[in-house]
Design a protein around this nucleic acid. Structure first.
Lengths: 264, 264
DNA sequence: CGCATTCTTGCGATATTTTGCATTAAATTG
DNA sequence: CAATTTAATGCAAAATATCGCAAGAATGCG
């Protein structure tokens, strides 16, 4: 096709975003006609934008991202199939009798549901929903971290929580990740949250970061740790091989989740 | 503008949810007409939304989910009308700015749902379900007691929890009651539980025991405290006058719940 | 410049999702 | 209980997504 006279890919993506913000929704067919490109290209654009978290991919087009504080059950349902696949891969790192440190977050909630019962596991968590989920199952020793509850995060953070972590040693910890980057490490959106995650990692022998694809290669406001503090990363199947290699080069054990093989 | 004028499936589901939240109810026929799709599609939408827990599927359409999203549906549903009445009476004892100590239990969960928002209340609790319930609302400072979770009780008890209570002073506490008797005081079914409740009462200026009628005049395995450690008892309307008098004679302030006057 | 590499794009083949309809089952109503 | 309304299920068609691929364009490098 003709070259630079048409809109550039990035330029087009920006325009899509503008239009989305104005109308609240965009459809693939509509955009394809508007920019004179195939729907495939539009889908790829939308996919990228969704990976940045600035839109939500839906069947037929895209919508504005879910309001940040949508009801918790809804957030949990979102991408739940993907998160369950991640969780299934993550729990393979767990050995019977271990002490686990489980941070808050919807991905970690999925991990809690995927943990095997009656394996003498001790789970330490700062998230009440995770504690409740595990109580409903059997054969877990559950320790709740106490302290000030942060409603925005849905978990306990702060000085008192840090103090309790100091008196603890865990075998494996799963810090919730806001963003992970091969060069700059692990990031969080809140400073207190970052402190808590850092302490979690410090008191654990091993650390496994479990992330959906949209969090890979991204940064956020506060650094939690450099990458060398992390032992394992569990990612989805669709991650670019180059990115996986970038992590492997830093001596991190990479694990890919198998999206198939759900529960019977 | 041929195809793009239609609403996207997800967009429609979001719109249904919005409409449901505004009107409190939606019907399938109404929605089918509104969006110009068959009722089958609407039913599928409602089914999905219900699976996410954001609405309740009923014959003919859908309603809002029951008051506060309930992970322990059964026990809480039981006697819920009576417990709500008790809770409404109990929260009358609460003053703005106070620090409350809220034990686990279905009655106390009802109290949590009945607490007034934005009154600068600080709620300290050992029950993750109560913490979650309060997080879903606004204007509360929430402190979670940490320690070993006891699945049978659904809350944290034990040495670590006791230790945290030692560093706390509360204005008013609501210990969950297994049994109360005018002569022998307050009782619990578990020894650790009894210890925890006793400490709760010790660190609080006032104590209010909120009980359903079946727990009055009963005993249990472990005594928590004698009756003189208790300031208030909230009971249901149908309690025998003689029993109320027996408590009054011991200088306890008695409060009766009004079973009528539910939420509009 | 030559050449390899990466990025983007469109296309075809193949899933997956959505939709409406027909049929059967269940709930509600009088 | 019978009549009506609403649900659930299975199915085929249409719309939309995904995947791999190859061609063209841009980019980087010797």
């Amino acid at each position: 096709m003709s070259t630079s006279a048409e809109t550039l890919p990035q330029e087009r993506q920006q325009a899509i975003l503008d239009r989305l913000r104005e109308h609240g929704r965009v459809t693939a067919t509509e955009l394809a006609a508007l920019f004179g490109v195939s729907e495939d290209s539009i889908r790829r654009d939308l996919h990228k934008l969704a990976a940045q978290g600035v839109c939500r991919r839906v069947y037929g087009g895209a919508l504005l991202p879910t309001p940040a504080f949508a009801p918790l059950p809804q957030r949990r349902e979102e991408n739940s199939a993907r998160k369950q696949a991640l969780a299934r891969a993550a729990v393979k790192l767990v050995r019977p009798g271990q002490v686990l440190l489980l941070d808050a977050g919807s991905t970690n909630y999925a991990i809690a549901t995927a943990l095997p019962e009656r394996q003498q596991l001790t789970v330490v968590t700062n998230a009440p929903d995770i504690a409740q989920c595990l109580m409903a199952r059997e054969g877990f020793e559950i320790l709740m971290i106490g302290g000030r509850m942060e409603p925005r995060i849905g978990a306990v953070i702060g000085a008192q929580a840090l103090e309790q972590l100091r008196r603890l040693r865990a075998d494996l910890c799963f810090p919730g990740a806001c963003a992970v980057d091969a060069e700059y490490g692990l990031w969080a959106t809140d400073s207190e949250e970052a402190l808590f995650k850092r302490r979690m990692i410090e008191v654990s022998s091993e650390t496994a970061v479990v992330v959906t694809t949209d969090k890979l290669g991204a940064l956020s406001a506060y650094q939690v740790v450099e990458l060398d503090a992390i032992s394992h990363i569990v990612v989805e199947k669709d991650v670019a091989a180059a990115q996986i290699e970038a992590f492997r080069a830093r001596e991190i054990q990479m694990h890919e989740a198998d999206p198939t093989a759900g529960s019977p």
